[in-house]
């Protein structure tokens, strides 16, 4: 491996263990303040419900799943997780600015595949993740991390299911990444 190239282009990421300790403390603080952990997929769910509500309010109300998240006194977007997700975006932007990673739009992918392949798989992956997160009652941050940290059985189940499956099927998608 070309040593010079590696050091020149090395992204300035923080030490993963430092990141982990900070993230752990953040989960702790979040539980201490709000009594529940962090999350991410819930905000997308609220967005789905809100946009569907704009286009066809009647259909949303009659939908067995989305109807649960509709209330008359406030918009479905007015939830804790939506605001938290706006925060995630702003925090990511801040970190990107600080470490000089905010650049023009780009796609990163393995040199063995094209950007288009990468984007198609990203779309399918996102859809699967969206569907799975509804069954799992949360995604990696809400269920696997915060759930397990608060000793919930469901969190451990989701965590092992995600990472176990990841390792089980990794072989078939290796071309996408290495």
């Amino acid at each position: 491996m070309n040593k010079e190239l590696a050091t020149n282009k090395e992204p300035k990421y923080i030490n993963p263990y430092l990141g982990g300790v900070l993230l752990g403390l953040l989960v702790l603080i979040t539980v201490l303040i709000t009594g529940r952990g962090l999350g991410a997929s819930g905000a997308i769910k609220s967005t789905v419900v809100a946009t569907a509500h704009v286009f066809s309010p009647e259909q949303v109300k009659s939908n067995a799943y989305m109807g649960k998240f509709i209330s008359d006194d406030h918009s479905p977007m007015y939830t804790w997780l939506v605001f938290e997700t706006i925060g995630i975006f702003l925090g990511g932007l801040l970190s990107g600015v600080v470490f000089g990673r905010v650049k023009k739009f780009r796609t990163d992918h393995s040199p063995r595949i094209t950007s288009r392949t990468r984007l198609i798989f990203a779309l399918i992956g996102g859809m699967l993740f969206g569907i799975g997160s509804q069954f799992g009652r949360g995604c990696t941050s809400g269920a696997a991390l915060s759930g397990t940290a608060t000793f919930a059985l469901g969190g451990v189940v989701v965590m092992f299911a995600i990472f176990g499956t990841g390792y089980a099927v990794a072989y078939f998608f290796r071309k996408l990444w290495i």
């Binding site: 992956g125 965590m159 995600i162 499956t165 099927v169």
Partner: peptide, 11 residues
């Protein structure tokens, strides 16, 4: 859900 998410994660 975890299995579906795992596949989605890799893809």
């Amino acid at each position: 859900g975890g299995v579906v998410m795992g596949v989605g994660f890799i893809m």
